[in-house]
Nucleic acid binder design. Structure first.
Lengths: 369, 369
DNA sequence: CTGAAAGCGCTTACAG
DNA sequence: CTGAAAGCGCTTACAG
């Protein structure tokens, strides 16, 4: 035990001091407790002279408000909400599950969590949902957003009501949310390209891309990133224009089947969007000579396909990490604290060997025994 | 806003009830507040009859202790410590930095954090450090462990003193710690193998492995996992026995240089251990014809080599995530709560495209302007 | 504009 | 074995 570093202690004149309280501040400033409280919390109705004295004392003593005590005395409940696209999309189901799971633990610490489902990918629907949401009494909300000026008015209304807003997975107009929690989709596309390039080991090839729609910003960004890297670093490879799928599994199935039946020169498939179950079902019928295959988001079917060797790679945005961070960021914003240090969000590469334990699978195993 | 789910509220008879307090429990049980407190916290000196009544009331009301209020009243400080190998190893520097960073934020919430450096990788040193540590007054400690029966006695002593112990990065003897936070190194090796296999695109090849020492459990496990996957799924590839390096960069440099000068049939390099700066410096002298190259842990030099294209892949254990989890788990253990849901630990694959933002780099850029 | 007092849900002596 | 009371650091009426 050679070296020792002490952090987070208050050492004064060699002795460990306890943290200053509002009482100490009031005393040092020569005002009453209540007055000190008023300036600390900007409650108004305080003489400028008092304000200055208190501010000064705060700085001198290095006072920091004890949020836990404050919350206790107010019986505070953090009222949080999530606005998530409704529907059966496996990815958003995963998001919902994790929110519920975290909420169950957090309820112990006086946090209430509501999930609202909004009509998927519709600017009108989302705009109306946000407007409705204004009526409710919440402290903060995480919204799976869209980029549209139509959302600005309802978002401004939320802010006016003191509700903290963050974008989740898909961003809102920049100036109308306090933070964005999600991956950079250009980076995700670049990552997919790097892996595809590596897997060709310098050989020639052509990559068939798939996208739900080029209007979807995340899809377009992934394609851009993908093309950038292939163009710059893998001159032997060609990126074919995307087949548009509306994220519909049956379209993906049909198109993939056609492609494989034609015995084309295609050496790799990359789907930037959803609907992978269709792609997988088509591919698994051609097990012997399938192309290299990358998709996004780890959900039941993509996971299974990875394990079975039908696809090679899944790029995942770790919705569990995103949700955890959304809670932490919302609480910090509501408390007007600094946002805590957290690990960065980066697209995660899964192969069959580094998959996280599968909770569903564990349950099924338990049932079988 | 079609559907709505409320979580974490207490709904009773249609009305939202606030959580029951100890007061409610005492009343329902027909005992005094103090007695209820005694059974909740197992303070002893309570008649069995009272215990039963209180336990019953707790179950009926679904009471859960308010930890924040308890901590406030006790002016509780969580006294946490980390035992980390000393030395200049870039990986452990990263660990130390992140601990300090998290600690700076946590100090606000009455947590004190101390880092103790112990002589690296020495069972004797670690054993003595743990014994010394018993004398100090802490609530919990995370230890970068070793597997040795010699550690059992001092660890038992820690437990006897009510100090919560977890293994971090490298595990302690199973029965003498409450949890282990770190990746599965067999999985890490398997992941490296899968990527190496893919990068050969079905072609033949030979992979030269490097390890610090085969006595190091993590090194041995990574090699095992690596061999397993190559053997099972990549029959065209051969895994060469590891060159032992003591994790010394100069040894790695020399050996790699020799290897490359010999113009061998080696198509890939995989170092399961540390000392990568040596490997990288040797490789970067042969930019045109270098083999495929995988190393562990994202630190300044491996990151730079990835960006420069000298190496292909870094497998990282996300020490930042591990540290965050260590704090959360220690606090849960100390509070005797359930361990909170957190994203799983899985070896992370980095290529040059999905790197997290580099804080150092950002600082240097700022200084240059 | 300012201050004294009760209360948030708990723990800790202290008195029976 | 049991209970009444003060106090943790804050907020919220309420009275001046």
């Amino acid at each position: 035990m050679i070296n020792k570093e002490a952090i987070g202690r208050f050492v004064f004149g060699g002795a460990i001091m306890s943290k200053p309280t509002l009482h100490d501040v009031a005393q040092a400033a020569g005002v009453s407790y209540a007055t000190a409280d008023r300036v600390i919390n900007n409650r108004g109705n305080v003489a400028q002279k008092s304000i200055d004295k208190v501010r000064d004392a705060v700085a001198r003593l290095d006072y920091v408000r004890n949020v836990a005590a404050a919350n206790l005395s107010r019986k505070r409940v953090y009222r949080l909400a999530f606005l998530i696209p409704k529907g059966t999309n496996a990815f958003f189901n995963r998001i919902r599950d994790h929110i519920a799971q975290v909420a169950a633990h957090l309820s112990i610490e006086s946090v209430s969590v509501d999930i609202f489902e909004v009509s998927a990918f519709s600017v009108d629907g989302l705009s109306k949902s946000i407007a409705d949401f204004c009526e409710k009494d919440f402290d903060g909300v995480a919204i799976v957003g869209l980029q549209s000026a139509l959302l600005e008015a309802p978002l401004a209304e939320l802010r006016a009501r003191g509700i903290q807003v963050i974008g989740l997975v898909s961003d809102l107009p920049r100036d109308f949310r306090a933070a964005y929690i999600g991956i950079d989709n250009v980076v995700a596309g670049r990552t997919a390209a790097r892996m595809t390039g590596m897997a060709h080991a310098g050989g020639h090839g052509a990559i068939q891309t798939f996208a739900g729609s080029l209007d979807a910003r995340d899809h377009a960004e992934r394609l851009d990133g993908f093309r950038e890297v292939i163009l710059a670093d893998f001159p032997h490879l060609t990126v074919l224009d995307p087949i548009l799928t509306k994220d519909d599994p049956s379209i993906l199935r049909t198109k993939t089947r056609e492609l494989l039946a034609q015995q084309t020169h295609v050496t790799a498939l990359y789907n930037v969007g959803a609907g992978n179950s269709g792609l997988i079902s088509a591919i698994s019928a051609w097990p012997e000579q399938r192309p290299y295959c990358i998709v996004h988001e780890l959900v039941a079917h993509s996971r299974q396909a990875l394990v079975a060797g039908h696809i090679d790679l899944v790029i995942d945005q770790r919705p569990d990490v995103e949700i955890n961070r959304a809670f932490a960021v919302l609480r910090a914003l509501i408390d007007q604290r600094e946002i805590p240090t957290m690990p960065e969000l980066t697209p995660t590469i899964y192969v069959r060997d580094n998959l996280p334990a599968d909770p569903l699978n564990a349950i099924m195993k338990a049932q079988n025994t």
